[in-house]
Computed example of a mutant assay.
Amino acid sequence: MDSLPRGPNYSELCKLWLERARTLPLSLVLNGSLKLEQSVQDLLAQYGPQLIALTLYVSCSGLESPQVIWEREPGSLYSLKTLSIEPTDEDAYYGDMREWLELLRDSPELSLCALRNVFYHQQGIGGGPLDSLTLTSLEILRLGGRHANRAMNLLHNRGSSSAVILRYLTLPALKALTVSELDIADEEFFSFLHRSSPTLELFEMTLPHHHPWRDPLVSRCLGLMPALTALHLFARPEDGATINPFLSFVEVLSTSPEVLPNLREIVFRTDGQITVHYRELLRMLKFRVRSCPTPLERFTLRFEDLFTWEYMLDMPTNEVKAALRQMVGDGLTICIGPDEKFLSL
Rank of each mutant, 00 (worst) to 15 (best):
H211D: 03
S196D: 13
H277I: 02
A148R: 13
P295N: 11
L51A: 00
P257D: 11
L217A: 14
P295A: 09
D239E: 15
F234H: 08
L224A: 12
L285K: 01
L44K: 03
E12C: 09
D183T: 13
Y278K: 06
L44E: 00
Y47I: 04
L101N: 00
W213Q: 14
V218T: 07
L143Y: 02
A235S: 15
T170F: 11
D271C: 15
I184F: 12
F303P: 06
Y93E: 04
P74L: 02
W17T: 07
A227I: 05
N149W: 04
L133V: 07
L202P: 00
S161E: 12
N9G: 12
P338D: 01
A227N: 10
L135E: 06
L80D: 05
R98T: 11
L282N: 07
L296A: 06
I140G: 00
E19S: 10
S76P: 04
E310W: 14
F203M: 00
G240L: 00
G127F: 05
T275Q: 15
G329Y: 01
D339R: 07
F234T: 00
Q123K: 12
L133S: 07
P338M: 04
Y120S: 06
R302S: 05
L345E: 02
N262V: 05
I165Q: 12
S196W: 11
R288N: 05
G159A: 09
S256M: 06
A21T: 10
L285N: 02
L56S: 13
T333Y: 11
T255A: 12
N153R: 10
L301N: 01
E280R: 13
E188P: 08
P208Y: 08
R105K: 13
E99N: 09
L143V: 01
D186T: 15
W213I: 09
P129A: 09
P198Y: 02
E90H: 11
L24W: 09
R142P: 03
V276P: 07
C292Y: 11
Q273P: 10
L296H: 01
L44Q: 05
G144Y: 00
A227Q: 13
E73P: 06
M327D: 06
D305I: 01
T300Q: 11
L231A: 03
V164Q: 15
H211Q: 10
L80W: 04
E310Q: 15
P237W: 02
L253V: 02
N9D: 13
